[in-house]
Amino acid sequence: MSNPIQDKGNTGFWGSLKDSPSTDEFIKGLWRDNPVFVQVLGMCPTLAVSNTAINALAMGLATAFVLLMSNILVSSLRNFIPKQVRIASYILIIATFVTMTDYIIQAISIDLHKALGAFISLIVVNCLILSRAEAFASKNTIGKSVLDALGMGIGFTFALFCLGAVRELLGNGSLFGVPFFPDNFQEWIVMILPAGGFFTLAIWLIIFNATKAKKATT
């Protein structure tokens, strides 16, 4: 976690607390502070498991679940955790929910678990979750932390889905496993390879920044 990101989160939070109603805690994660497109956090799962829409969605939801639960627990224990051991405590809490998610996904679908592979366990080191615990949940009430986690979680899931949908459409000719093009569609194999993740993310970032720049000038 680099300092600029943390600072940004802080000012965003303090600014919004003063000026806006608490619904803003929810909205900010969706667009203005979108974890992938604006904060560029959690790149490892974003690039690695967004090769199909279903994988991206599952990964996004799993991360959102861990984010929500850890935000609740961190927020409710915020007066109990001494600051010297706070990072260790957060990691412990996050790791617990990741392990639980791992079992739950296995119980839901073995195939899905296989497709996501090691990246479920790697949610532990997703800096998005740790940064929300440190920058938000540890300083706010449970209610606000829930809103924040929901907003960030849905924003993350949305971003992953944007990547996954494009990559699956071009790389596999389908969406959610349903063929989208005529039979003899030529798949762009590069899109489901890791390189395709970088290309797609770059294109989305261009679109995102271009719209933002346009908004700012008008």
Partner: peptide, 10 residues
């Protein structure tokens, strides 16, 4: 206390 408590909950 904090670490043990959290550890047990987890």
């Amino acid at each position: 206390q904090a670490m043990v408590g959290i550890g047990i909950i987890c």
